[in-house]
Simulated assay, not measured.
Amino acid sequence: MDLKAHIRAVPDFPKPGILFYDISTLLRDADAWQVAVTRMADVIRDYKPDYLAGMESRGFLFAAPLALKLGCGFTMLRKPGKLPGDVVGLDYTLEYRSDRIEAQADAVPPGARVVVVDDLLATGGTLSAGIRLLRQLGADVTAAVTLIELSFLSGRDLIDVPFASLLQYDS
């Protein structure tokens, strides 16, 4: 199945000059979503994760069903103020702003093998921050996997673990 045929390109969203790759069209097609999750599971399985960490928020849409399919735990990496209990956070800078990502302090036990999952890799700042945050928690981050990679932005250069994406866009 050609998964790219199920992703809508939306020009000038969320601001002029940005071409947004909309996965909602893939998610509402049960067969396409199943194929995407199965193909991502085939990649992730080789890393033998104990947990999958989903990046807020679209990463949850893939990480949660993948964790069920692979028989491992799922944890969320979220924006500030979204998680109850004790949290650990990491401030990071993107090319145009700064941000923060948080996880519950007990999200993964020390030494757990974790694969980070998101829908899309652009410049790599957020995914890289997620990896660093999980390491602060004591995780062994073995890989990062996304559905889409905007390869022309070279985001994978910031990712210091094995990285894979199902779909690449070169412009």
Rank of each mutant, 00 (worst) to 15 (best):
G81E: 07
K79H: 02
R39E: 15
V141K: 02
V108M: 07
D2W: 11
E102M: 07
D91R: 14
S171T: 13
T146C: 13
E95S: 07
R28F: 13
V35S: 10
I131C: 09
Y21T: 09
F62M: 01
A122W: 03
L166W: 01
V108Q: 00
V43Y: 09
R8Q: 15
L150Q: 04
V117Q: 04
M76H: 10
V145H: 05
A103D: 09
R135E: 15
M76F: 11
R39N: 13
L27P: 00
Y21S: 03
P16A: 05
P80T: 02
Q136M: 14
L52S: 02
T93M: 04
Y51L: 11
L83I: 00
R97E: 14
P80V: 07
Q34H: 15
R113K: 14
G89E: 01
D140N: 15
K82H: 06
A143M: 01
S98G: 12
V117N: 11
K15Q: 15
E56F: 03
C72E: 06
L127D: 03
T126F: 01
V43E: 04
V10N: 08
C72A: 00
R45Y: 06
T75R: 00
P110I: 02
S151I: 05
I23Q: 10
D157A: 14
G89L: 03
G59C: 01
R113P: 00
T75I: 15
T146L: 11
L3V: 07
A129V: 03
A32F: 06
D46W: 00
Y47P: 05
P109A: 14
I18K: 10
L68D: 14
A67R: 09
A9M: 14
L120C: 11
M1E: 13
D46P: 06
F60G: 07
I131F: 04
F62T: 00
A53H: 03
D170Q: 15
D91Q: 14
S57H: 09
I148R: 04
L61M: 11
F13S: 12
A105S: 14
E149S: 12
F163T: 11
L121D: 07
V43S: 07
G89Y: 00
L52T: 12
I159V: 12
D119H: 11
I44Q: 08
R78H: 02
R97I: 09
P80R: 08
G54W: 03
C72W: 06
R78T: 06
Y21K: 09
Y92W: 06
E102K: 05
K48D: 15
P16R: 13
S151D: 13
V88E: 14
M1L: 14
K4C: 03
I7L: 02
L27I: 10
A143W: 05
L52N: 09
L166N: 00
P110L: 12
E149P: 04
P65F: 10
R100C: 11
V108T: 11
G111P: 13
S165K: 10
F152A: 05
T126H: 06
